[in-house]
Amino acid sequence: MVVNMQLQATFDMDLLQACIEGKAHAQEALYTHFSQKMFGICLRYASDYHSAEDILQEGFVKVFKNLDRFRGDGSFEGWLKRIFVNTSIEFYRKAVTKRNIVELDSVFDQGHESLALDNLAAKDLLNIIQKLPNGYRTVFNLYGIEGYTHKEIASMLGISEGTSKSQLARARESIKKMIQNLND
């Protein structure tokens, strides 16, 4: 296992070096290797398939332009993921309108209801996430899936912590309702 990881790391570093040197085959190999996983992230943050493709495209351009800045401290995939999340946030910032951000101080759902998610396919769940308003979807992704705190989300999105909390609560409510509708 350790050997495999080392091999993978060596392969990645060689691939990166070749990409930095501008070798087209290496760049295509890197894209092929990571595009599906990164597209999954983009689909979670985007409202539709085409927007997700736009995010993916912008993200990979950023990756190839800044490959030489990857210092190898952490995993390359983690570095890539951060770039795509940041690119998604940039798209969110462009798309967001004030009506999508609604302050809601009191609502903070703590209900631990059982959810029939097992019956749902990933694509159905993705559809539900994509149907959420921009603010809800972004906050839910950042908090629920990426694991950022409300403070970090507030800083990233340029909103208050209260707004982040309220957006998350509303996102959860909306997801629950949509899942129930699907199950019914």
Binding site: A52, E53, A122, K176
Partner: peptide
């Protein structure tokens, strides 16, 4: 820890999809 968040995370965290060829 919210069960909804965890459930969605479990389903979507490893979700992958193939983008169209024109992206590359």
């Amino acid at each position: 820890i919210n069960p909804l968040d965890e459930a969605v995370k479990n389903v979507l965290n490893e979700f992958e999809s193939t983008p169209s060829a024109n992206v590359w």
